[in-house]
């Protein structure tokens, strides 16, 4: 049951995004609903595969990884581009991640999770988030930070990818420990981080619904 908390958090975020972002003026924000729906489906598939069919579910998350990379890259581009020229960093990042993903996945016949790609992606996301913050601090625009959706979307991403650095680095080790220990350390950390990520995103969606603005 403990393992089913993550899909529930994602489902709640998906429902909030559906309620807040389905109106016509939501623009690119509407893609959040589709992405979150896909994440919920993948999480459920992973849960069923592992607990009911007793199979390795890494391949499911490995399939979700490029989707996540493309979606989050898209978000970062949409949010960062109006503030600074993020195009070269984004294109370069995408090329590197795709190459790394293909190499890792071909090596494992797409059966294992591409942990190195995830580490590279995390570092890159944190770097872009920091650039966004630096530009936000520098510029003269008068924004209400507590209700500014792009800020909370970036904050969720920053928290998730920055704090998960250690668990990403020790991914293989923690997978082994997870099987033996009573308390699943990696899962517990990822549960907290998922709660923060989808919590801040949901908050951003609610802010967006109350005050629709472009990033």
């Amino acid at each position: 049951m403990y393992y089913y908390v993550n899909p529930v958090i994602e489902l709640i975020a998906c429902i909030i995004s559906f309620i807040c972002l389905t109106h016509r003026g939501a623009g690119w924000y509407r893609n959040f609903t589709w992405y979150l729906l896909l994440v919920v489906l993948a999480e459920n598939a992973g849960y069923l595969t592992y607990f009911y069919f007793k199979h390795n579910n890494h391949w499911i998350y490995n399939c979700l990884l490029p989707v996540s990379i493309f979606f989050i890259t898209g978000i970062l581009y949409k949010i960062c581009q109006p503030r600074f020229n993020s195009k070269p960093i984004i294109i370069m990042g995408l090329v590197v991640f795709m190459l790394s993903y293909l190499i890792e996945s071909i090596r494992s016949n797409f059966l294992e999770y591409s942990a190195i790609t995830k580490i590279l992606f995390s570092v890159w996301v944190v770097f872009l988030c920091l650039l966004y913050y630096a530009n936000l601090i520098k510029e003269e625009t008068n924004i209400e930070i507590y209700t500014y959706p792009p800020f909370w979307i970036i904050t969720g991403l920053f928290f998730f990818y920055f704090v998960s650095t250690t668990t990403n680095l020790f991914f293989d080790y923690l997978i082994q420990v997870n099987k033996k220990s009573l308390v699943p350390i990696r899962y517990s950390i990822s549960l907290i981080l998922n709660f923060i990520l989808y919590g801040t995103w949901s908050y951003a969606f609610i802010c967006y619904r109350k005050n629709p603005i472009s990033s």
Partner: peptide
């Protein structure tokens, strides 16, 4: 020991991120 180290480092990262977000929001306000 390794698990403890992982947990401590994660906590440090967590506090650092929290502090940074707090600082940015206060600064922008």
């Amino acid at each position: 020991n390794i698990i403890l180290i992982i947990l401590v480092i994660t906590c440090i990262f967590f506090v650092a991120a929290l502090f940074m977000i707090f600082y940015i929001t206060i600064f922008i306000r």
